[in-house]
Computed example of a mutant assay.
Amino acid sequence: MDLQNLSYAAIQVVHNFGAVAVVGSAACAFWPGLAWMRKPLAWAMLLGWAAQAASGGAFGGVSWLYYGRFPDIHGIAVAALLIKMACAAAGFMLAAAYLYRGAGWSERAQLATWRALATLAVTALTAAAFLRWFS
């Protein structure tokens, strides 16, 4: 069995579930009648961003382990990676802030936060496609 490919595949599974968590939790937060679920959804969002960041780093780690260097990306792929990293950092911090203080925020502020989280999730997912195909 090729351990390198197995490593990449296992990391990709975590990365995919992280993507589902960030996009899915944001989508569910707007569902009529599910406002009471926003705190658990914020936990899913926070864990999803953590999974995205950890698995993204793990991709680079496997490349470093097997090749002694990080993947050779340039141009659009670098921009896409930086966008994904910025979205993950901002999404993690915003979800954490929501968990810490969000229950006391107005409905308008909560919805604005979830719109921002949804935008970050969709932007990261879109950047992932560019990273994949331009690297």
Rank of each mutant, 00 (worst) to 15 (best):
G56A: 04
F134I: 00
T119R: 10
C28M: 15
A109S: 15
A53K: 03
A9S: 11
V14P: 03
A103Q: 14
A26T: 01
V62D: 03
L125E: 05
H15W: 08
R101V: 03
L82I: 00
A90F: 08
F17N: 02
Q110I: 00
Y66R: 05
N5C: 01
T119M: 15
R132E: 03
Q110H: 02
L131C: 02
I83T: 12
A35R: 12
F59E: 03
L47Q: 01
A10V: 04
A27R: 00
L47A: 07
W114V: 00
A79D: 07
K84N: 05
Q4I: 01
A80T: 02
Y67S: 09
M45V: 00
S135T: 08
Q110C: 04
C28Y: 15
T126C: 12
T126Y: 09
R69Y: 06
S63Y: 12
G91A: 11
L131I: 00
G91T: 12
L111N: 14
K39A: 14
F59R: 05
W31R: 06
H74D: 14
A116L: 13
F30N: 01
G61W: 03
W43K: 14
A129E: 09
G75Y: 05
D2R: 11
Y66G: 01
L99E: 15
S55C: 07
I76D: 06
L46R: 10
L94R: 15
A26L: 02
V122C: 08
A128K: 08
A121M: 04
A27P: 00
P71Q: 08
R101L: 07
G24L: 02
L120S: 14
G57T: 03
A80V: 01
G18N: 06
M85V: 11
A86P: 01
F70K: 09
T123F: 02
R69T: 00
L65C: 06
F130V: 07
A27H: 01
T119H: 06
V23M: 06
L41R: 11
I76H: 10
I76Q: 13
I73K: 14
V22I: 11
I83K: 06
A58W: 09
L41D: 10
M93I: 05
M37E: 05
A97N: 14
E107Q: 11
I76W: 15
V22L: 07
A27G: 12
L34H: 12
L117I: 04
A29H: 04
L46Y: 08
G48H: 09
A50S: 12
S55D: 06
